[in-house]
Design a protein around this nucleic acid. Structure first.
Ligand code: MN
Ligand code: MN
Ligand code: ZN
Ligand code: ZN
Lengths: 147, 147
DNA sequence: ATATTAGTTATAATGATTCTTAATTTATAA
DNA sequence: TTATAAATTAAGAATCATTATAACTAATAT
C-alpha cells in the first residue's frame, strides 16, 4: 500500500528532474512510512544505521528539495524544531500540549474564512493554516490516574 | 485612547504582584502603541534610545512575564523570530508572504472545528490557531506596476 | 537597618538550521 | 568510451534567536 505511494513519489521526483540518490530515497521512504511527523534530526538518527556517513545537512537538503516539489510539508512551531509531513492530502493537525504528539484530522477546508479574510483585509489569500491544541487521550488518562 | 489600555494593563500587572520597572513599562507601552506585531529585537532597538543600558535579555524576560499574565500573545513562525501582540481580543491574522506584514482580522471563533476535532481525535481541545497567507494590497500593486 | 526577593545587565551557552568548500557521483556530450 | 558539466554529498564552520548564568542593583519585608 505504501509501496504505491513511494512509486508515485519517485515518479514525481523523476518528472521534476531531481536525481534519486540513495539518501534521498531513504529520507522519502522513511517519511512515507512514518505516521509521527518526525523532525530532521529524528530522520537523521533513524537512518544513520543504513547511512553511517550521511550528514545532517543532507537530510535538510533533501527535505528542502522534497518540499519544493510538493512531496513534503514542513510544520513549523515556535520553540522547537520543524516537523515534516509526507501526507500531502489536505488535512489539519491536533497537537498535544502535554506530550507533543501530532495527530492528523480531516475537516472541510475553511474556504469561507479565506474569502472573508480577502474582503476585510484586501489580501489576495493563497492558503491558510489551522491547528487545534489540547490534551491527547493517553495524556488525559495519565492525568486522571493521578487521583 | 491607548492611555486607557495602558492603565488597565498596569492594573493587571499590579494585581499579579509583578513590579512595574521602567524597562517593563516601556516594553508594554511600546507594544500597546505598535500595530505591527514587532519582534523582540525590534522592541529592543526601538527602546535603546531611552534605555541605552538595557539588555536584550530584559526584553525577552519582560515579554515572557507579560505573556504569562496574559497581556501579550506570542506569534511563532518557523524560520524567523517570534512576534508579539498586545491585542488580547480574539482575532486572527493575515500574513503577507511578500513583505511579511501581519494584519489583524476578525472572524467568529471556529468553535465547530474545535468540537469536531475533539470527536475525531479524542483530544481535549483547549484552543486553536488559524491564519491566512497571501499578498497584501501594497504588494499586489507593486506586482501589477511591473507591466 | 538588615535580610530577602525580584529585576537587570553582560556575557556565555545552546541548538536548530544554513553556509562553505572540497570531494564524489551522476548525467550529458563528443 | 571518455571528457565535461552539473548535481549531490559530507564535514565542519557559521549564523542567529533565544535561554542560562552570575554578579549587581533596586524594592520590599521583618
Ligand atoms: Mn499530517
Ligand atoms: Mn494581532
Ligand atoms: Zn499527549
Ligand atoms: Zn505585502
Amino acid at each position: 500500500m505504501s509501496e504505491k505511494r513511494l512509486r508515485q513519489a519517485i515518479d514525481t521526483l523523476k518528472e521534476s528532474g531531481v536525481r534519486i540518490t540513495p539518501q534521498r530515497h531513504a529520507v522519502l521512504e522513511y517519511l512515507l512510512n512514518s505516521m509521527v511527523h518526525p523532525t530532521a534530526d529524528e530522520i537523521y538518527k533513524a537512518l544513520e544505521g543504513k547511512f553511517p556517513n550521511m550528514s545532517v545537512a543532507t537530510v535538510y537538503n533533501n527535505l528542502r528539495v522534497l518540499k519544493e516539489i510538493g512531496l513534503v510539508r514542513e510544520l513549523t512551531y515556535g520553540d522547537a524544531s520543524s516537523r515534516f509531513d509526507c501526507n500531502t492530502s489536505e488535512h489539519y493537525h491536533a497537537i498535544c500540549e502535554s506530550c507533543g504528539k501530532i495527530v492528523d484530522f480531516h475537516y472541510p477546508p475553511l474556504d469561507e474564512v479565506e474569502s472573508l479574510a480577502e474582503q476585510v483585509t484586501g489580501f489576495d489569500v493563497s492558503h491558510h493554516r489551522m491547528e487545534v491544541y489540547g490534551t491527547c487521550e493517553a495524556c488525559q488518562q495519565v492525568a486522571t490516574q493521578k487521583h
